[in-house]
Design a protein around this nucleic acid. Structure first.
Lengths: 230, 230
DNA sequence: TATCGTCAAGAGCAGTGCTCTCGGTTTTGA
DNA sequence: TCAAAACCGAGAGCACTGCTCTTGACGATA
């Protein structure tokens, strides 16, 4: 038993080291991760990597899963760090946490929210961790509706869309008026649109004060979903 | 003259054919475009391609430029096809045109708005064509402010941001209250966030009626920038 | 102790971008 | 008109990639 767990332990250590080295390469060389380069950095031969990851895509998948978890942790922790009644503060904290994580890990963010890798299909395991940030946002809305602090929007969704959004609500296990859920999705879309624009260089050269710009746009979306001022 | 223009003409024809074949490969194989595969499809040897494009990145750049122009054409044409006074109709038309083009050309859209290719730096020629869609949107806002149909938002931007956005306004040669320009940028961000989410599979499995969803979110942003109803 | 699973190494295959050289054609200019 | 210059395609070759297979050694297990 001890012997077996010892071997298993060094194996787990190898896997961790490979992922760490790969993450380092990802940060410098971008998404085209070279297995051979990773192996070189570890003083190994490229074929030895295949003892631990059956293919390059599996290594990428492992990195993607970890990145989703890290982003989810960051967003949820930021939300949890604010007084539950301060809906707007929680909204801003969640937005900021996502951006901060993305700026600190641009290559991994690009892996998650950039163009999908051509031959690569995201496994189903990723959908749960990937939905943690949007779930955090709609959680804020749910809390607001529950204690009457947040008034749902006046408009009603017309028919084909209303049932779609309602079904999405039961899928996410949230109880929100469809019109409000749709506005929440606009906030979610805006969040990652903002980060992608900033990270992918679409606002290069303009807007030197990025933090202020991001916070202001965050506030616009907070208004859109109906969060009360302070 | 005739002789010279004859050779120049077959050269231009070759360049066009290479781009066409490359675009076809882009659609099937994604962003990792293979020069050798393109050459094979043309019955040529890979080195012959280098007579026309000094490197693979230059071929990619040519495709990117054409894609930007095509997208810009589509958006501007859609806007131009609506009665100038119908601000909301123009807004919706521009949004829809961008999405329609992206759905018809997913690989090229990913090239423009996906994660930047690692070793590749977008040349400066791309910034002008890339700004045509957002310029179309702010053009609608300008027209609305000019004829008094659109009331600027009540809020005022606080200081570091206000000058940033104002400078951006002069850069774009538009005369808008900074707060309104910021809201316009939110609409621009939302547009490409929506398209990216849809195209990159982030709303797979939910929302079967994508057109209705897109139109509704477009309307939310029209409200945000203050476009009058119909 | 003997056996079986695990491991790293190496050779090798097919593919990539890119460079260079070699003939042949076309255009140019005196 | 005819030589010089420019252009073009083919081919070989380099360094690199992901991946497969085989070989030999090590360590845990029964």
């Amino acid at each position: 038993m001890v012997a077996h767990s010892l071997r298993a332990r060094v194996r787990a250590g190898m896997i961790d080291e490979i992922k760490a080295v790969a993450r380092r390469h990802l940060a410098t060389d971008g998404a085209n991760l070279s297995l051979r380069a990773v192996a070189r950095d570890m003083g190994m031969v490229s074929s030895a990597i295949y003892r631990y990851f059956p293919s390059r895509d599996d290594l990428l998948t492992a990195l993607i899963l970890e990145a989703y978890e890290a982003l989810g942790d960051a967003v949820e922790a930021a939300d949890a760090g604010v007084d539950r009644a301060d809906l707007r503060g929680r909204w801003h904290a969640a937005f900021r946490a996502a951006r901060t994580w993305a700026l600190a890990n641009p290559a991994e963010y690009a892996l998650l929210y950039g163009s999908p890798v051509p031959g690569y299909a995201a496994p189903a395991d990723t959908v749960a961790p990937a939905s943690r940030p949007p779930l955090t946002l709609v959680g804020i809305l749910c809390d607001g509706v529950a204690d009457g602090r947040l008034d749902p929007p006046a408009e009603e969704l017309s028919e084909p869309l209303r049932t779609d959004v309602a079904e999405l609500g039961v899928l996410l296990a949230v109880d929100l008026p469809p019109a409000l859920l749709a506005r929440g999705m606009a906030g979610w879309t805006q969040l990652f649109g903002l980060i992608s624009f900033e990270l992918f260089g679409r606002i290069n050269g303009m807007l030197p004060h990025r933090d202020e710009y991001f916070d202001h746009q965050t506030g616009l979306m907070a208004d859109l979903v109906g969060l009360p001022a302070a």
